[in-house]
Nucleic acid binder design. Sequence first.
DNA 1: CGTCTTTGACCCGCGC
DNA 2: GCGCGGGTCAAAGACG
Length: 294
Amino acid sequence: MDCKDEPDPEAEFIPDSSWSLTPDSDTANYFFSGDRDNSILGEFGWNLQSTDLEPIQEEARGHLLRELESSGAMLGSPVAVGGDPAAPVSSGGCGRDVSTSTQPSVSSSSSEDPPEKSTGSGGKSPEIPSKARKKGQKRIRQPRFAFMTKSEVDHLEDGYRWRKYGQKAVKNSPFPRSYYRCTNSKCTVKKRVERSSEDPTVVITTYEGQHCHHSVGFPRGGIINHEATFASHLAPQVSHFFYPRGQVARAHHPTDAQQAPVDAEPCMVSEATPRHPSDEGLLGDIVHPGMRGR
DNA sequence: CGTCTTTGACCCGCGC
DNA sequence: GCGCGGGTCAAAGACG
């Protein structure tokens, strides 16, 4: 499906001076936000668990700032911090233990066990595999990443394959919200797509979790969708620091992606670069109300 | 036939 | 405790 979708030219991410990076020392959240005409509107945020990442937090921050500067972005005013500061950093998806050991982690259970199609009936734990969810345990959200894109296409191609598993009407919005899950059985990344009630031309995409495998490929011809482009600009750096203890995302090459089996990789990431960063997110907590109009 | 979408029902968290 | 809204499940159908 996705792979057949026409990439949306309008969705290209081009950071410019209207974008800003906002570190939040208290919650260790960093938000990248901006407002760009005819391109992308939104924010990018991720959590760095203070206990484990403090030592690299500053470095990460500096690194990010440099990257943003080099890519034309400019530091700016703070944006509202949403997200779930209390949530443990997790690799998400089938992340192997990139999360800290002291906290219950989604990845710890999901890494070995593919998300079971939960037995029984009815919805199970929305955010945590039932296996890992114990009585009294609060649901834990994975790192989130959300952004808004001006596009006529709801579900934008991003190099990964998604399976729609639900759609719900959103309160105070005429547009429904769609729920997608990565088709890779070992990957627990989820994605929500909805249109802004204020501006129907704006598509709000929210990711949660991180892919533990290669993308399935991008369309040839250099047309890049918003996510891919976004990734190429920021993901490498972000993911690098996102993974504690030196675990870094595996490179994801658009060129070989077409051959890369969706679930070829177990999640251990090795040296280097770009990894899809687009695996976080519950927009509801990230994008300010003003931008979304929820 | 395999994969994906649709959709109603169910579960859970949260506010009142 | 109850109701609401969000999130997920899973059966059924559509599609290639």
